Simulated scan of single mutants.
Amino acid sequence: MDINSDDLKIFVAVVDSGTLSAASVHLGQTTSGVSRALSRLEEKLQTTLLTRTTRRMELTEEGQLFLDKARSILASMEEMEECIRIRSQQPSGRLAVDAASPFMLHCVVPHVAEFRRLYPEIRLELRSNDQIADLIEHRTDIAIRIGALSDSTLHARPLSSSPLHILASPAYLEQQGRPHSPGELARHTLIGFVQYELGNQWPLRHTGGDTYAVQPAISASSGETLRQLAIEGQGIVCLADFMTRADIAAGRLVPLLQDFNTGYRQQINAVYYRNTQLAQRISCFLEFLQQKL
């Protein structure tokens, strides 16, 4: 005979209550009924879970193992029921989403129309910020952050990851030539970030290691600005795949030094404060975005 959820609930209730009579009150059953159910469970398992005396009950080693598994299974069932319950409701209200300009333009904006069709009662507020924004100060519900996280007070959900490409336009390469090794970058015009030094550590293997530190001739705070500069033939740039994939496919930008690329991928995370009133809106937005990424 198979074990069912009622078996697990009765067993956990007996352990948590301490006595059969207390468990019967909690479960709304008779003490004899709870006792018989516990005995049937032990018969199914062919082992003793509890040693029972007139004064107390103690878990056996097998009982402790079964208790841990039972709690985990019941918690998973509750979580599943909650997810289904949330999905059956229509989320509504304001949802403020903050992301760097490139991510907002290339990964969020193209899918807004579909999201609005699915969740017409959610009022989206989209904000572009190329610096890390304080969620409370900016009244932001979700922030999309690229790279390593440092905010331990925030709940984080991994969404995806994106490789980095070394890129230049065909016009630039025709005029300046193509570099064939990281060392040759020194004679080229390089485009990089200002106030974001990690963005100027390119994932290239060379004699000094697996990252190549560049000194940009042109700097900008926004990755979207760097992208436009590269398309206009102003130099060589290192940018994420999510914002340059279409440019590469269309031939506006050409990948360089692929044999030297380490394959490093930038992590893409959503961060937010835990808030039960927002949980429904946050959950549906993140599930939708994760599917698109």
Rank of each mutant, 00 (worst) to 15 (best):
Val25Ala: 10
Glu174Pro: 04
Leu289Tyr: 07
Ile268Gly: 05
Ser39Trp: 00
Glu224Met: 10
Phe11Glu: 10
Leu286Val: 01
Arg145Lys: 08
Phe115Asp: 08
Leu289Thr: 04
Ser221Ile: 10
Ile236Lys: 13
Gly147Lys: 15
Leu190Gly: 00
Thr262Phe: 07
Ile282Cys: 00
Val25Trp: 11
Arg71Trp: 00
Glu114Ile: 09
Thr31Val: 12
Leu173Ala: 08
Leu74Glu: 01
Gln29Leu: 15
Phe66Arg: 07
Glu121His: 03
Lys44Pro: 05
Asp2Glu: 14
Leu185Arg: 02
Ser128Leu: 02
Thr225Trp: 12
Ala156Asn: 03
Glu43Arg: 15
Gln267Asn: 12
Thr53Met: 12
Ser152Ile: 15
Phe193Cys: 04
Asp259Leu: 10
Phe103Leu: 13
Ile136Gln: 15
Glu174Leu: 12
Asp241His: 11
Ala220Tyr: 02
His188Trp: 09
Trp202His: 08
Phe115Arg: 15
Leu135Ser: 07
His106Ala: 13
Thr48Phe: 03
Met243Leu: 10
Ser169Thr: 02
Ala213Phe: 07
Ala217His: 14
Ser72Ile: 03
Thr211Cys: 08
Ser72His: 04
Arg56Pro: 09
Gln29Ser: 10
Asp241Phe: 04
Pro170Val: 03
Ser35Met: 01
Ala75Tyr: 09
Leu105Trp: 00
Leu38Asp: 00
Ser17Ile: 10
Glu58Trp: 02
Thr262Trp: 08
Gly209Glu: 01
Leu293Glu: 01
Gly28Glu: 10
Ser283Thr: 07
Glu197Ser: 15
Gly63Glu: 02
Gln215Asn: 09
Pro91Arg: 05
Leu124Ile: 06
Asp210His: 12
Leu95Val: 01
Arg274Lys: 11
Val15Ser: 13
Tyr119Pro: 08
Ser24His: 13
Cys284Gly: 00
Asp259Phe: 09
